[in-house]
Design a binder for these strands. Structure first.
Length: 200
DNA sequence: TAGGCCATCTGGTCCT
DNA sequence: AGGACCAGATGGCCTA
């Protein structure tokens, strides 16, 4: 299990070496500039300008803790920065994957893009619907009963029944569109299923 | 203004 | 040992 409490951040830890010399600052600036995304650059800049990313934030209370390793503060600082950079890259690739997923799952186009939770929930429902289609084509029982709610974790969107479905063409508000994404799955799947059957 | 969503930092843990 | 992964914390942006 992971600890629920955050430990003292590296930059607040008692050190016998002065942290943040010019070299480290330069390295950090280089990392910032290397970020191609403008928004990313802004975020990092924000952190640099005083946004505390540390949690808890308590001081060490006067009790000096010596590091067990013999690694210097500068070295540790550099490793932290490199680790931050890797984590940023990792999250960017994760976001790319989300973007690709958004492109392949059918959904009503909205002004705003699908959030991550929406994307995952829609993808899950789509897989379930596809599984049902396969089962039907094989003459088997449906595997899943599709709930017409793509926001299962969020009560405000739960239990939207089919009767409450509104016309896809005339719907303008996001909530109704979202609720109908699952209906669209079914319609798409049913028509493609018919096509498959007809070509046999 | 509150709440949702997001990007980032951070330290702990897991894995190779 | 070092990198990947994970989850908590934080603060910014946006919208109702």
């Amino acid at each position: 299990m992971r600890s629920l409490e955050m430990t003292t951040p590296w930059h607040e830890e008692e050190e016998d070496v002065e942290v943040e010399d010019m070299e480290i600052r330069k390295h950090r600036d280089d990392l910032t500039e290397s970020s191609s995304d403008e928004a990313t650059g802004r975020k990092i800049a924000r952190r640099k300008n005083g946004g505390s990313a540390s949690s808890g934030g308590g001081s060490s209370g006067g009790t000096t803790r010596r590091r067990k390793t013999c690694i210097s503060a500068r070295e540790r600082n550099l490793r932290r920065l490199e680790s931050n950079e890797r984590e940023r890259m990792r999250m960017h690739s994760l976001n790319d994957a989300f973007e690709q997923l958004r492109e392949v799952i059918p959904h009503i186009k909205m002004e705003r893009k699908l959030s991550k939770i929406e994307t995952l929930t829609l993808a899950k429902n789509y897989i379930m619907a596809l599984t049902n289609v396969i089962c039907e084509m094989r003459g088997e029982e449906k595997h899943y009963t599709l709930a017409y709610s793509m926001y299962a974790p969020y009560s405000r969107f739960q239990d939207v029944d089919e009767d409450s479905a509104v016309d896809l063409e005339t719907t303008t508000d996001d909530t109704s569109r979202e609720q109908n994404n699952n209906s669209m799955f079914q319609q798409n799947l049913e028509s493609s299923q018919e096509n498959v059957m007809n070509t046999r």
